[in-house]
Design a protein around this nucleic acid. Structure first.
Ligand SMILES: NC(=O)c1ccc[n+]([C@@H]2O[C@H](COP(=O)([O-])OP(=O)(O)OC[C@H]3O[C@@H](n4cnc5c(N)ncnc54)[C@H](O)[C@@H]3O)[C@@H](O)[C@H]2O)c1
Ligand SMILES: NC(=O)c1ccc[n+]([C@@H]2O[C@H](COP(=O)([O-])OP(=O)(O)OC[C@H]3O[C@@H](n4cnc5c(N)ncnc54)[C@H](O)[C@@H]3O)[C@@H](O)[C@H]2O)c1
Lengths: 237, 237
DNA sequence: AATATTATGTGAAAATTACAACAAATGTAA
DNA sequence: TTACATTTGTTGTAATTTTCACATAATATT
């Protein structure tokens, strides 16, 4: 009997509904935190695999990434039974499963808008390719940047975004322009058919409900740190 | 009657205990998510203030940053009564309070280790100064990078980290070296007295309990997006 | 073959976080 | 002055997430 799993992640994620006649439709609600941890587990498994380790327990994964063993098992249990009781998990297999779950069993072309310092760093970042990402287009609307070569990529004018995005089959856009222009760029991305956006600018971006958007927010993380350091030294709030 | 507030943030944060004789000691447990949102509210208030807006309601803040009005009020209520019923919040005052709470009523010197592409982008990032951060030192152990000038900063050898960190009173270190060296750099930071670490490398770093560490994790966010896009197109997991 | 050991998967309990509803306070208009 | 509209601060409630505890299964040992 085939079970089609209907995964819905909680928190900020939009709900996803799918129908599948004649099959059991199981509605799963997966915490966003679980998906994030899955990404961490997956990277840890990659390291184990590289080191020739073939089997791992939930406890070892837990130690390796700093969560509880129960959390590891619970997280994995959302997606299936991947382990063997009394033994643990096969590293290669579990790695393959986690990658599949995260959608990393395929190549993901990305588009970056903003060829400034951050955009440059992103373009040259070696980490992407390991996980199946590659930059398929970099855009800017500053004439001093357009035409510049970054690695084997040429910075294109923003006007070409829709055309190239379509040709390259890009579904994920990355915003690396200065704060005041981020919303404008997001709008263009949405119009050009991006289904997901990763935003590096420290500002709240508005997009339609069906577009996935996440922020990589340096300031929030830094200010979380100063908050914590602050209460260690401040007499009262 | 003076109330000394003992703030403890939840999740990954370490608990903080303070004593204060003769005063009411109220133990607050603040969700990390609340602190993160406070950072977002604070930035939104900065924008309002810049636009000359003097009063704002929880509903307007909520609309501006994409949360519920109740959430805004609840978050603020952890730290005090900042509003006026029937009126709302004074923008300038609330901005000042949020900055104070986040520990941003002082200058924070930062140290960056890794003068690669990301390190360079961070050094030249204009966003820091607005919130009271400034890069007080950049370090690398690659001889081709040492001595290079980034803005008005010179890249120093990593060996000088402890000395400069002490002289410049640096408490927060930023890791921007390649993944395989991140733990090593973290160890040096801890030994040099850093109390908080911001890590950009996609790997789990181990530090003593009393050191605050947070990750700015590009991969997790990207893979959250591919997870969501994946379940929209994949027939079954 | 029986027993011990190890480690998964899971249902129930506990903890945490978000949400909703409303009383209290303020300002405004009749 | 009174009634009305607005919006906070707070209490209770619902939803979500994590943790706990253990039955179950696989392997190792005696
Ligand atoms: N530099 C960092 O380390 C860092 C870290 C985190 C977040 N950020 C954020 O990332 C963003 C970019 O930072 P940066 O340091 O690269 O700034 P930058 O000034 O170096 O680069 C901005 C780039 O965007 C381009 N641009 C501006 N408007 C555009 C538009 N409408 N369309 C296309 N391109 C446009 C500019 O020409 C420039 O090349 C900022 O919002 C910043 O706050 C930067
Ligand atoms: N480039 C990006 O956009 C980006 C984004 C997110 C995360 N990251 C992560 O940030 C890290 C750095 O990325 P990058 O693109 O700047 O890489 P990079 O190769 O350009 O720079 C790495 C720098 O660290 C220096 N370094 C290496 N070992 C060191 C040590 N022991 N002490 C001091 N310095 C040392 C190197 O000399 C080099 O200058 C990586 O872990 C990467 O995964 C990069």
């Amino acid at each position: 009997m085939k079970i089609t799993t209907n995964v819905i992640i909680l928190q900020k994620a939009s709900s996803v509904k799918r129908k599948s006649a004649g099959e059991i439709l199981k509605t799963l609600r997966v915490p966003e935190a679980t998906v994030s941890r899955l990404s961490i587990y997956s990277r840890f498994l990659e390291r184990l695999d590289k080191n020739g380790i073939t089997t791992v327990s939930s406890g070892e994964i837990a130690d390796g990434v700093g969560v509880s063993p129960a959390q590891v098992r619970k997280d994995l249990a959302y997606f299936g039974d991947f382990g063997t009781r009394g033994v643990g998990y096969n590293v290669k297999d579990l790695l393959k499963y986690t990658l599949k779950i995260l959608g990393l069993d395929q190549e993901w072309p990305l588009a970056i808008v903003g060829a400034g310092n951050l955009g440059f760093a992103l373009c040259t970042n070696r980490g992407f390719s390991v996980r199946g990402f590659h930059i398929a287009g970099v855009f800017d609307n500053n004439s001093t940047r357009i035409g510049k070569q970054i690695g084997n990529l040429e910075v294109k004018p923003l006007a070409q975004f829709p055309e190239i995005a379509k040709k390259e089959n890009i579904r994920i856009g990355i915003i690396a322009v200065r704060t005041s222009l981020a919303q404008e760029v997001a709008d263009i991305m949405v119009k050009s058919g991006m289904q997901a956006i990763l935003n590096f600018s420290p500002v709240t971006i508005n997009v339609p409900e069906d577009i996935e958007i996440r922020n990589v927010d340096l300031s929030i993380k830094l200010e979380l740190l100063t908050f914590n350091l602050g209460i260690k030294t401040t007499q009262s709030l």
